[in-house]
């Protein structure tokens, strides 16, 4: 399964809303994501893609839109 689809699945599960229509929207500004959801995202990335992201790698401004998250995961995978 490719990274983009998996990340979108994780995000949809986490936020309870479909984010695929707004790939450049800031997830934190709109309140869809918060610190708790960030940690859940990191744990899901680990379990579903085997991508290990330590908490201090999570600089919020680099992870705040679906597109940025996908790009980040692709560099780390």
């Amino acid at each position: 399964m490719d990274i983009k689809a998996t990340v979108l699945d994780i995000l949809n599960d986490l936020t309870g809303s479909d984010v695929s229509g707004a790939m450049d929207d800031n997830l934190f500004d709109s309140g869809i994501m918060d610190s708790m959801a960030s940690v859940q995202l990191l744990l899901s990335l680990q379990s579903e893609l085997g991508v290990n992201v330590p908490v201090s790698e999570f600089e919020r401004s680099e992870w705040d839109t679906p597109n940025k998250i996908i790009a980040k995961v692709e560099t780390l995978a």
Binding site: S35, M36, S38, Q40, L43, V55
Partner: peptide, 24 residues
């Protein structure tokens, strides 16, 4: 947030201390 909250949440969830994420 970065050095206490997120790390504690991470630890709690990884060790499945609480059933629900909201409780965590």
């Amino acid at each position: 947030r970065d050095f206490i909250y997120m790390r504690l949440v991470f630890w709690f969830m990884k060790h499945k201390i609480f059933k629900k994420p909201t409780t965590t």
